[in-house]
Nucleic acid binder design. Structure first.
Length: 428
RNA sequence: GGACGGGUGGGUGAGUGGUUAAAACCAGCAGACUGUAAAUCUGCCGCUCCUUGCGGGCUACGAAGGUUCGAAUCCUUCCCCGUCCA
């Protein structure tokens, strides 16, 4: 790593502290920064992530952004992919044992993770590691030795295990191993600082302790708050469906971000934008005083977040489109187009981007059509929405679930299904 | 190894032979209201077929068999979880 001129410790700390939940212990972090500045040696800061799902969402980016901050300050960012630990499953915050992932799933996920991670981290300056590097080489003796460094009572102190015990829920022994094995990562990486979400605090502390058992100076720990999901209640997570995926289309992201409760936007400003605390406080003042409409503040937020992943131009377009569709109640400028072609044999065919050729009967009922075109999860679902007045075709509500699409003439239909699904269906 | 309790739809959880596709609540969806917000109100909420009817078929209460006109409910075996004892 090239020589870096580090900023004064106070300045670095101020930058680091934005949005942080807890630093343990602060003095130690300051001392480490001091030391690094004196010796011109960057600190090793790491974040470990288990590739348990193929896509990242905004919640993941909170900690990633913090890692990026360290990178900005000239320190070494280590992104650790828990390809081995993912197969154990982190017991944090779960009320039941996770199903173990297969090697294949983990590998596939790890690949897509990295692509997405580099939307935030500087690819050139990130050290990427996999914990299978060392964990898969451990033998029984190594594992036993590792385990001897920790006590059962301390392990059972943690909230997740305790509540599962209290509720007569199962805990498998391998779950106890999780924090110990990932502690091995901290030892191998010789990390100075480890980042994680607040719920990771227990694991991070174990890592710190084990590092010392192995004769290393214990790492400092920095935790970030959990990003609350779109429902304004629970943590953002894929399984709860209250998330914004970072690979989602700009328009989709915009709609989702606008649906968060107003109060929540401040926490989003803090955790997923680059605004300084002062800027956020000012913005908030403007909203409270009535100078700025909350909706406009939220639109700004959405636009800023989206530009990180799709660029400024796309974000601006998404904002304009939102304005048009939802405030002015017009159809979006650009919407997905589906072409239905009549075939000589009377059937219709359509080619959707990912899926193969679809063949549809000559005069489909709307619920069927919408399902086949992947606009609804099931036919019943589509029929329900239609009966409830959620289907609009060329500006007219169609409430009849057995109405059919007339395919005898060439035509284009602008279709709205529910709140945010728009599609143009072209019969030709 | 023994004794006892338990496994129900995305979640919590009622239901112990028959109008039970399964109460209630949560989540979700649609509509109204709005700032597409939140809150609130109304409705929907397994899949599928048609001639859309208090219509037909299929799937579903850990798994597999069985009893019965009929089973989430009874019987048998198996699997899984917890508690206590060893």
């Amino acid at each position: 790593m090239a020589q870096t001129n580090f900023k004064p410790v106070e300045e670095q700390l101020a930058y680091i502290k934005k949005g942080v939940a807890e630093i343990i212990p602060v003095e130690e972090l300051a001392a480490k920064l001091e030391q690094s500045r004196k010796t011109s040696k960057p600190l090793r800061v790491y974040l470990g992530v288990d590739p348990t799902a193929p896509d990242l969402h905004l919640g993941h980016t909170v900690v990633l952004r913090k890692l990026k901050h360290f990178q900005d300050l000239g320190h070494t960012a280590v992104f650790l992919i828990g390809d081995f630990s993912a197969m154990i499953g982190d017991p944090t915050g779960v009320s039941e044992t996770r199903p173990p992932l297969t090697r294949e799933q983990v590998d596939a996920n790890a690949k897509t993770y990295l692509e997405q991670v580099f939307k935030i981290l500087d690819r050139e300056r990130t050290e990427v590691r996999y914990n299978s590097e060392w964990l898969s080489k451990m033998n029984a003796e190594d594992v036993v030795r590792l385990c001897s460094h920790y006590r059962l009572a301390r392990m059972l102190e943690r909230e997740d295990f305790r509540s599962r015990l209290d509720n007569q829920q199962p805990i498998s022994v391998h779950e106890l191993l999780y924090p110990l094995l990932t502690a091995r990562d901290a030892v191998e990486l010789k990390s100075d600082i480890e980042l994680g979400a607040t719920e990771q605090k227990f694991n991070l502390l174990v890592h710190r302790e084990i590092q010392r058992e192995y004769g290393l100076p214990g790492q400092a720990i920095l935790t970030m708050p959990i990003l609350v999901g779109l429902d304004g209640q629970r943590k953002m997570s894929k399984s709860l469906g209250n998330y914004v995926g970072i690979t989602e289309a700009p328009g989709e992201m915009f709609g989702k971000l606008m649906s968060i409760p107003d109060e929540l936007m401040w926490s989003y400003y803090e955790l997923v934008t680059d605004r300084t605390p002062q800027q956020i406080a000012e913005l908030r003042k403007e909203v409270v005083s009535g100078k700025l409409h909350p909706m406009d503040a939220k639109m700004r937020l959405a636009e800023e977040v989206i530009s990180d992943f799709h660029g400024k131009e796309a974000a601006r377009k998404a904002a304009e489109n939102f304005q048009r569709v939802f405030r002015n109640r017009q159809a979006p400028k650009e919407m997905q187009e589906i072409r239905l072609r009549r075939r000589p044999d009377g059937f219709l065919e359509t080619q959707t981007d990912e899926a193969a050729l679809q063949v549809i009967s000559a005069s489909p009922k709307w619920p069927q059509l919408l399902k086949y075109l992947s606009q609804a999860e099931s036919i019943s679902e589509a029929a329900r929405v239609i009966e409830q007045g959620g289907l609009e075709i060329n500006g007219k509500i169609l409430r009849d679930p057995i109405a059919k699409l007339d395919t005898s003439v060439d035509a284009a239909y602008e279709v709205r299904l529910g709140k945010r699904k728009f599609v143009r269906i072209i019969v030709e």
